[in-house]
Measured scan of single mutants.
Amino acid sequence: DEVTIHLGDKTIRVDGLDKELLEILKELARRGADEEELRKEIERWER
């Protein structure tokens, strides 16, 4: 499953996201997290 996250004018595509992680990323994005913060969160989950 590829998920596309839209952040204002930026788009991040991620393969096979965990549903819980997806919810966390959506919440972070709502709070104004930037792409770098979201990537760090994704990397934390992948470990």
Rank of each mutant, 00 (worst) to 15 (best):
D1A: 14
D1H: 13
D1C: 09
D1Q: 11
D1R: 05
D1E: 13
D1M: 11
D1N: 13
D1W: 10
E2P: 11
E2L: 11
E2T: 14
E2N: 12
E2S: 14
V3W: 15
V3G: 13
V3T: 13
T4E: 13
T4M: 13
T4C: 08
T4H: 14
T4D: 11
T4N: 10
I5E: 04
I5C: 06
I5W: 01
I5Y: 01
I5A: 02
I5V: 06
I5Q: 03
H6N: 15
H6Y: 06
H6F: 07
H6I: 14
H6S: 13
H6V: 15
H6Q: 15
H6K: 11
L7E: 03
L7V: 15
L7P: 04
L7C: 04
L7D: 04
L7R: 02
G8W: 09
G8L: 10
G8H: 11
G8S: 11
G8R: 03
G8F: 11
G8Q: 11
D9F: 05
D9W: 03
D9C: 04
K10C: 06
K10M: 15
K10F: 15
K10Q: 12
T11Y: 10
T11H: 06
T11S: 13
T11F: 14
T11W: 11
T11Q: 07
I12Q: 02
I12G: 02
I12Y: 05
I12A: 01
I12F: 08
I12N: 03
I12S: 02
R13D: 08
R13N: 15
R13L: 14
R13H: 12
R13C: 03
R13T: 14
V14G: 05
V14S: 02
V14T: 06
V14W: 12
V14E: 03
V14M: 04
V14I: 11
V14A: 06
D15E: 14
D15M: 03
D15A: 07
D15C: 07
G16R: 09
G16T: 11
G16F: 10
G16E: 10
G16I: 12
G16K: 10
L17N: 06
L17A: 07
L17W: 07
L17M: 10
L17G: 06
L17S: 07
D18A: 12
D18V: 09
D18L: 05
D18T: 09
D18N: 08
D18Q: 09
D18W: 05
D18Y: 04
K19D: 10
K19I: 11
K19Y: 10
K19W: 11
K19H: 11
E20D: 12
E20N: 10
E20A: 14
E20W: 05
E20S: 06
E20L: 10
E20T: 10
L21H: 02
L21G: 01
L21M: 03
L21R: 02
L21I: 05
L21T: 02
L21D: 00
L21P: 00
L22G: 04
L22A: 08
L22I: 15
L22D: 01
L22C: 04
L22F: 10
L22V: 15
L22W: 09
E23F: 08
E23T: 10
E23C: 04
I24P: 00
I24G: 01
I24V: 10
I24N: 04
I24Y: 11
I24S: 04
I24D: 01
I24K: 09
I24C: 02
I24T: 07
I24A: 06
L25N: 00
L25W: 00
L25Y: 01
L25F: 01
L25A: 00
L25P: 00
L25S: 00
L25C: 03
K26A: 07
K26H: 09
K26R: 15
K26P: 00
K26D: 05
K26C: 05
E27D: 13
E27C: 08
L28K: 04
L28R: 01
L28G: 01
L28W: 02
L28C: 01
L28F: 04
L28M: 15
L28E: 00
A29T: 08
A29Q: 07
A29R: 05
A29F: 09
A29K: 07
A29N: 04
A29S: 07
R30T: 08
R30C: 06
R30V: 10
R30Y: 11
R30I: 13
R30H: 12
R30L: 14
R30M: 13
R30W: 10
R31D: 09
R31I: 09
R31E: 09
R31G: 07
R31V: 06
R31N: 14
R31S: 12
R31H: 11
R31K: 14
G32S: 02
G32Q: 01
G32T: 01
G32P: 01
G32K: 01
A33C: 03
A33T: 04
A33L: 05
A33N: 02
D34M: 07
D34G: 13
D34E: 08
D34L: 06
D34N: 14
D34Q: 10
D34S: 15
E35G: 03
E35D: 05
E35W: 06
E35L: 08
E35Y: 13
E35I: 13
E36A: 13
E36K: 08
E36D: 14
E36T: 10
E36R: 08
E36Y: 12
E36N: 07
E36H: 12
E37M: 12
E37L: 06
E37P: 00
E37Q: 11
E37H: 06
E37G: 04
E37S: 08
E37R: 11
L38K: 01
L38V: 07
L38A: 02
L38H: 00
L38Y: 05
R39T: 07
R39Q: 09
R39E: 06
R39C: 08
R39K: 11
R39S: 05
K40L: 13
K40G: 08
K40H: 06
K40N: 12
K40S: 10
K40E: 12
E41M: 12
E41W: 08
E41Q: 09
E41S: 04
E41F: 10
E41R: 03
E41P: 00
I42S: 01
I42Q: 02
I42K: 01
I42E: 00
I42Y: 04
I42F: 03
I42H: 01
I42A: 02
E43A: 03
E43R: 03
E43T: 04
E43H: 05
E43P: 00
R44K: 11
R44F: 07
R44P: 00
R44L: 11
W45R: 01
W45Q: 01
W45Y: 08
W45N: 01
E46L: 13
E46I: 11
E46K: 06
E46W: 07
E46P: 04
E46Y: 14
E46V: 08
E46D: 09
R47W: 12
R47P: 12
R47A: 15
R47L: 15
R47Q: 15
